[in-house]
């Protein structure tokens, strides 16, 4: 009985990896290509460019980290296909 459930889990994990590969650029679009980015400026009355810089470079680094952690899993998926 354990075999079918483990195969289902594997399939689910595979699907999750592929969904993550979609979510990463979607997150990128949310970070940089939506009006959300304007809230970083208007939230501060002094409109300091520094906070915006931290935000952009921070989000950028986060996406790179995400891509790094996904890259190996996706490569394995690609090899299997």
């Amino acid at each position: 009985m354990s075999k079918p459930s483990s195969s289902i889990n594997k399939k689910r994990a595979k699907r999750k990896i592929k969904e993550l590969a979609f979510i990463l650029p979607a997150l990128g679009v949310f970070f940089f290509l939506t009006p959300f980015i304007n809230t970083i400026i208007t939230s501060d009355t002094s409109t300091d460019i520094r906070e915006l810089l931290y935000y952009i470079f921070g989000a950028w680094a986060l996406l790179i980290l995400g891509a790094y952690s996904l890259s190996r899993k996706l490569t394995n998926e690609g090899d299997k296909e």
Partner: peptide, 24 residues
């Protein structure tokens, strides 16, 4: 133009982190 120069690098970043869907 301030931070506008970053756009030239954010576009390719979005495309590369989503490599699985188009570049591949």
């Amino acid at each position: 133009n301030g931070l506008e120069f970053l756009t030239i690098y954010l576009g390719p970043t979005l495309l590369f982190i989503g490599w699985w869907w188009l570049l591949r």
